[in-house]
């Protein structure tokens, strides 16, 4: 029985991850693809945060009376990953802007048609 509530976060993370991946694959709109990519990445952030949680633990702050605290390392790691995610999103969106200038559309299918012509 202990398994059931304890694993719920991981189920949520996996569902979120697959949703993100599905959006990236299924949507033809370049901005929607980036949104999907974001959902996908956020699920991984949640995976790390979930791992760090210690039952009954507080925030990892050094103060009197605090004996049990969550593992701070995954938090720090994911801070780095969030920065990377922001950079990727920014670069992706910048590319979409330039694609829009060059092709006049951000729909995958229409871009494919335009590319076939040249």
């Amino acid at each position: 029985m202990e398994q059931f509530p304890g694993l719920i976060p991981y189920w949520v993370i996996m569902v979120l991850m697959m949703m993100g991946l599905y959006i990236v694959i299924a949507h033809g709109n370049l901005i929607k693809k980036i949104v999907g990519l974001n959902v996908f990445q956020v699920s991984v952030f949640l995976l790390y945060i979930t791992m760090a949680k210690v039952e009954g633990g507080t925030a990892p702050i050094l103060a009197e009376g605090i004996k049990l605290y969550s593992n701070p390392l995954p938090h720090v790691l994911i801070l780095t990953a969030i920065v990377v995610g922001v950079a990727t999103t920014a670069l992706g969106l910048a590319l979409v802007v330039r694609i829009h200038n060059a092709y006049g559309t951000i729909e995958d299918e229409e871009i494919d048609k335009l590319e076939d012509q040249t």
């Binding site: 670069l91 590319l95 092709y103 871009i111 590319e115």
Partner: peptide
């Protein structure tokens, strides 16, 4: 541009 975008994804 599209090559870079697809590589990014």
């Amino acid at each position: 541009l599209t090559a870079a975008y697809r590589y990014l994804i």
